[in-house]
Amino acid sequence: MKLRTKSFLGDSLIVLISLIFIVFAFKTFWHFETGSVVQVNFQGKTYGNFSLFQDKKISLIGKEGESIIEIKEGRARFARAPCKNQYCVQQGWIHLTGQMLICIPNEVSIEILGKTKAYDSLNY
């Protein structure tokens, strides 16, 4: 088959449509929003939902000891954890929907919720 391309009109069209699709995909799937509520899960159950705009400290006594969750200025974090590794504390503040902090030894996790629930890999 001989190449008879005289213009790249069709190609330009394909590239243009692809570009539009990519921009659209980024806007749709990489849409992060600031959350408004933090859900605290403790020992496999929902301990409660707390507004992120009300500064608060929540103390939970679990198997390992005391975990302290701090809510301040629209963000949440683990202020203190009883475990050795301190992974949850070191991850710092979270504020976007779908973000999550977990303390496995003490069975505490917090998750930021918004108007719509964002995808996360933990539900899988």
Binding site: L3, T5, S7, F8, L9, G10, D11, L13, I14, V15
Partner: peptide
């Protein structure tokens, strides 16, 4: 039509 579509597209 190969007039408008090259291997690139």
């Amino acid at each position: 039509p190969s007039k408008f579509f090259s291997p690139i597209g």
